[in-house]
Amino acid sequence: MTTKKFMMVNRKAPYGTIYAWEALEVVLIAAAFEQDVSLAFLDDGVYQLKKGQQTKGIEIKGFEKTWGALEDYDVTQLYVARESLEERGLSAEDLTVPVEVLSRADIGKLMEEQDVLLSF
């Protein structure tokens, strides 16, 4: 099968809308199709990776643990926008998995290299 470079762009907070969760389902399927999958986290999307998510009170299934499982699917390219973290008072230490923190401009360059960009 042809392998293409897929980048999933996550821009929204994890539980206010379903985009983050359903985007994660796309990531897992793309990995199952053995595509070259990377993820970019921009704007409120950086909150998806925040450590210590507790969703019991809102009765929505939490998915923080799924990020740690991505490695088993060979999904290891996680890029987080530095400016988005800083604007929200966050740093890489606040995130649940190791990521590469890049400037928005550098993430833009990575986007140019992709075959398929899916924005959620």
Partner: peptide, 20 residues
């Protein structure tokens, strides 16, 4: 059908255009 159809569309097409 399944999400695999979306990934296949990405693989087979010259452009996958997202509306959201």
């Amino acid at each position: 059908s399944g999400l695999g159809q979306l990934i296949e569309a990405g693989i087979q097409s010259d452009r996958l255009v997202v509306f959201g």
